[in-house]
Amino acid sequence: MSSDEDEGWVPFSRRPGWSDVVPIPQDDGPNPVVPIAYRDEFRETMDYFRAVYFANERSYRSLQLTSEAIKINPGNYTVWHFRRLIIDSLNVDLWEELEYVDEIASSNSKNYQIWHHRRWLAEKLGTGSANKELEFTKKILALDAKNYHAWSHRQWVLQAFGGWEDELDYCCQLLDDDIFNNSAWNQRYFVITRSPLLGGLQGTRESEGRYAVEAILKNPENESPWRYLRGLYKGDPDLLVGASLVSEVCLKVLQTSHNCIFALCLLLDLLSHGLQPCTELRTAVQRLSSEMELPDASLPGTVCSILERMDPMRSNYWAWRRSNLPCQAS
């Protein structure tokens, strides 16, 4: 490749295959500021790009030129658009194009255009590309397990082509690596609610509840599994209040951890929805309350006071929760 960094960049004006093209500079206005010396490579590449783009020249040399322009600025969406037109016109091998995206993606994994291009290719290739796409997103997620684009591409592949069989295991693996990874928790919820193989929330609630509880007990300050646990009982507060494992995990965390903001918050939800607390729960809350020398109040009111004290940045939120307690609970 003539643009290979090792060999040094050859200006288009000195390349034999480009002698017939007149480069088109960016529109020059009435107030030109003296151009400062800067990346000639960028300027010349874009001048030649404009030439082939405006001439609508869908040729192999144009394809090669878009590769160079993308290398310089992968965010330039017009270059990508033109590249797709060329690919369509020349019937370029789409698998080869996938390889090309593989090459540039790892260093530009947060670029919208690359992912959109990838999706366009996968859509054209159909189900046959499923495994490759799942592997590709895995590779990107190995570099950054929270890459938003990679996750949304992966979700699209699963829904469009399938491949759900190993997805829950994959979530486990990522959560083993980093239990705080909210993206992986989100994917887990995506799998249990949308996979055709698992029986939905009803079929997974028990085992997933145990999984979330285990994660909570390891790191009670981790926001994600607490929300996940709540999500398992989405839209059904009675079921949440009736689930013994939910009130038990609150109790365990209150008894053993200093990081109990999320436990108190969930307990507050349970109490607001009519949970009749056991003696141990009352004792655990009262212990915290007396440590903080808080005045006597109802159990939910005390929980709010503790939270206000423990989490001063959000004290207005907790004060609002107190003011919003059901009559019999406050």
Partner: peptide, 14 residues
């Protein structure tokens, strides 16, 4: 989503 937030497409993280 379950946390009350929204993502880029249905099911995407908040």
């Amino acid at each position: 989503n379950l946390d009350g937030g929204f993502g880029c497409t249905p099911g995407a993280e908040s």
